[in-house]
């Protein structure tokens, strides 16, 4: 029996505390990746929705909260991405997962082209202008027979896979989109583009004078956000197997993105995360009330704008001053 206490060297202790979050994150990822082996199809499908809604809300939040670009026609990116996936897979008879890069590429190209007319507008005009563009795409797909017109298209190649593979594959794609959106948003905002955007948001004239290209910064953001949304839209419709003009180009997509970002907190990275959890909690509990549920959701968003414009995250951060992702910014005085 020894009375000598074991003296822990200091260095491994420090190392251990530094390793802890990383270990936790790795375990978390492993749990999420392995999910198809232990969770039901229903759970997987719900999580696919969760991850894609998170990515779309994050993309909207990047534009509105950091770039000062309030988009009401955000559904256009969802539609373009989903239609690009379905059309390329159906026409070329290709594996849909291999067509996801095509969907991303088409979304990026569409973002680039659409920036030309849209960036001539600003403020409220820009906001509703994007909606006009989304409505044009909606009407065009409704009237285009080789895109299935009003009935839309199924994703034919998905029929070649068994149910487990199909569900797991879509789930993994959604997981990649969700984690990718978080990683990209964090990286972008910590990098030079993030710095440029912050300076523009604080004072556009001063940023211009100090050599920040406002136009280029906003264009980069628009491309990143549009591609992110397009890809998330494509994966989201792999989950439902059918695209239609009315659903895919529906304003509901923007409404969900706005609710999620507003409830969680616009202009923060944590906001869309918190908002997505809140949105799905509310939906799972109250969705049976139909129109009343939506009325309640709208009123909640209004109340948030009036009472706590920083959203739920601002309330959390006020109580427990933590900065998970290190890019907290106050709401822009737009």
């Amino acid at each position: 029996m020894s009375d000598t206490p074991t003296i822990m060297p200091a260095a491994p202790n420090v190392l251990r505390t530094a390793m802890l979050p990383l270990t936790m994150a790795l375990i978390g990822c492993a749990v999420l990746v392995a999910l198809p082996w232990y969770a039901s199809f229903a759970t997987q499908r719900l999580l696919v929705e969760g991850f894609t809604v998170f990515a779309i809300a994050m993309a909207w939040n990047l534009l509105a909260g950091y770039g000062g670009l309030v988009v009401v026609g955000h559904q256009m990116f969802v539609g373009v991405g989903a239609y690009a996936l379905f059309a390329s897979s159906n026409w070329l008879g290709l594996n849909p997962w291999l067509c996801l890069p095509v969907a991303a590429l088409v979304s990026a190209l569409f973002s680039l082209i659409s920036s030309v007319p849209m960036f001539r507008l600003s403020g409220a005009h820009f906001a509703v202008g994007t909606w006009v563009l989304a409505e044009m795409l909606h009407i065009l797909t409704l009237n285009t027979s080789w895109l299935g017109a009003g009935a839309g298209m199924p994703l034919e190649a998905l029929g070649d896979f068994d149910r487990w593979t199909r569900n797991a594959g879509v789930y993994w794609a959604a997981l990649a989109v969700g984690l990718g959106a978080l990683a990209i948003a964090t990286t972008v905002l910590h990098g030079p583009l993030g710095l440029a955007l912050m300076s523009v948001r604080d004072n556009e004239a001063a940023a211009l004078a100090s050599g920040v290209s406002v136009r280029r910064a906003k264009l980069s953001l628009w491309l990143i956000s549009g591609t992110m949304t397009g890809l998330a839209g494509a994966v989201s419709y792999m989950n439902t197997l059918q695209v239609t003009p009315d659903a895919t180009f529906s304003l509901n997509w923007t409404a969900i993105a706005i609710f999620t970002a507003v409830l969680g907190g616009i202009g923060t990275l944590e906001g869309p995360l918190v908002g997505t959890v809140l949105y799905f909690l509310l939906r799972e509990v109250f969705a049976d009330y139909g129109a009343w549920y939506l009325i309640g959701l709208g009123m909640l968003a209004i109340a948030t704008m009036v009472v706590a414009p920083g959203g739920a995250w601002s309330l959390i951060a006020r109580r427990w001053p933590i900065d998970l992702l290190g890019v907290r910014r106050s709401m822009p005085p737009l």
């Binding site: 403020g123 409220a124 139909g290 129109a291 939506l294 709208g298 968003a301 209004i302 005085p333 737009l334």
Partner: peptide, 24 residues
């Protein structure tokens, strides 16, 4: 008087509320 974002989001919420109220 608070710029673009707040009035736009507030009235967007109002639009959802009105539509669903009419539907109900």
């Amino acid at each position: 008087g608070q710029g673009t974002l707040s009035p736009l989001l507030l009235t967007f919420g109002l639009s959802i509320v009105l539509q669903n109220f009419l539907q109900e």
